[in-house]
Amino acid sequence: MRLLTHNMLSCNIKGVTNGFPLRIEVEKSMEKEVDFNIDFLKSIFSKVEWTALVDAARSLGYNELPEEVADSSTMLESSDFLKKFHHALLELHLEEGALICPETGRRFPVNKGIPNMLLHEDEV
């Protein structure tokens, strides 16, 4: 799974109010090249929780993203920034590991790149 997906996932166990972002536990990660599309990056940027992406990328060993994006309109014109954003969002994959709810510690396993977000009966 890509970090784009990680950025769109949260724990929705009944009663959990603070289920985002899920902490990443890495057993195996990989990089896969993805075609670059500036329009996509620009349109998705405002939907991405930046800090969650920075932390997720760091947990997969990628430390090149700036902590904060103060002036997004300038940053989104920088090809250096866009390349790093593209790499972190789409090319880093969590293959094996788990996503951990920050509030409850519940583990959602990730196998062969597929997160399992199914809840148990008593969690719905």
Partner: peptide, 15 residues
């Protein structure tokens, strides 16, 4: 991106 979910569990709020 493929996710094992009941309809959209885990995706509903952020997506």
């Amino acid at each position: 991106e493929v996710i094992c979910a009941d309809i959209a569990t885990g995706l509903e709020s952020r997506l």
